[in-house]
């Protein structure tokens, strides 16, 4: 260990400068903006709790929160179930494992813009691939993204397709940490595969599970590109995510004070949700 105060400060100086400009200042400025009305040009006007009072009565804000929660409630369980299934299946084979893993992971690295443009066509009502398959099977067409009730679930399904590879490899790492002898011993004792999965695999995967839930929650709260490109937040605001709403208010309409207030309250909600999740998952 080198004992030198000056070296510590000197080597940390890039971060200190960066944090002063791009962390501390925006944080302080966000607090300032929450209490001001500002269009970015004229002088900011102090409005006290005006922005927050407006937010509490803003039906679109509530709508956007509910939409985001709807996305999370569909997306996370779907993702965990499929990621676990993929990871267990991949873990049980050796030949072609890396190949399958590589293909499953590909949508993770490809831009959300690509995935959304692609799925927009797959979801198309009249001649999309999914509805073509359904009509060939003698079933009716599904209004994937044109129906307010289905649009958000459809986006959640698409997001699962895009992200599941990431959580699959995380579970795969977790599975490989479980000693094979544990399964072997349980098998000799007569435990069935299902029982071994529920009694050995699932409990030992708890740390990975916590990580996956927290990460996908944080990612889900960032939902923006998919509704922005796919639906623009429609139909009837059914896919208006909170980040999309903040973008619209703060950037598109130029309501910077109100946009900052939305971001502030939304950040608090995210923190509370993530903390509750952590507590619940770690004590469960």
């Amino acid at each position: 260990m080198l004992r030198a105060r000056s070296h510590g400060w000197l080597l940390s100086s890039p971060y200190l400068v960066y944090a002063a400009v791009f962390v501390v200042f925006p944080l302080a400025f966000s607090l300032y903006l929450v209490f001001h009305r500002w269009d970015g040009m004229a002088a900011p006007v102090f409005v006290g709790l005006g922005n927050l009072a407006r937010l509490v009565q803003d039906p679109l804000f509530y709508r956007s929160i509910l939409n985001t929660l709807e996305f999370l409630v569909i997306h996370i369980p779907l993702q965990i179930v499929f990621a676990l299934l993929f990871a267990v299946a991949l873990n049980s084979i050796t030949w072609l494992r890396g190949f399958f893993r590589a293909v499953y992971f590909m949508p993770v690295v490809v831009s959300g813009v690509v995935v959304t443009i692609l799925w927009q066509q797959l979801y198309s009502y009249d001649n999309g691939v999914l509805n073509t398959i359904l009509t060939h099977l003698g079933l009716g067409r599904v209004p994937w993204v044109t129906s307010p009730a289905l649009a958000m679930p459809s986006i959640a399904l698409m997001a699962t397709w895009k992200n599941v590879g990431l959580y699959t490899v995380m579970f795969l790492v977790g599975l490989q940490d479980i000693p094979a002898e544990m399964h072997e011993a349980a098998r000799i004792d007569g435990a069935t595969a299902v029982k071994r999965f529920l009694r050995i695999t699932v409990p030992l995967l708890r740390p990975t599970m916590t990580l996956v839930v927290v990460l996908s929650t944080i990612n889900g709260f960032s939902l923006f590109v998919e509704p922005y490109v796919m639906t623009g937040g429609g139909p009837l605001n059914s896919t208006l995510s909170t980040v999309l709403y903040i973008y619209n208010q703060g950037f598109y309409f130029g309501h910077l004070g109100y946009g900052a207030a939305l971001g502030f309250v939304f950040a608090l909600i995210i923190l509370v949700v993530v903390l509750i999740q952590r507590k619940a998952l770690e004590s469960a």
Binding site: R5, H7, G8, V23, P26, L27, S222, F264, A267, L271
Partner: peptide
């Protein structure tokens, strides 16, 4: 690898900022 007083505080600060959602500072 450098022993200095600030490192504890700076590490704590970094961990704190990691918790902050980007939505908080997007508009500012």
């Amino acid at each position: 690898k450098v022993k200095w007083k600030g490192s504890v505080y700076l590490t704590a600060f970094l961990l704190f900022t990691m918790m902050l959602p980007f939505q908080l500072t997007l508009i500012p």
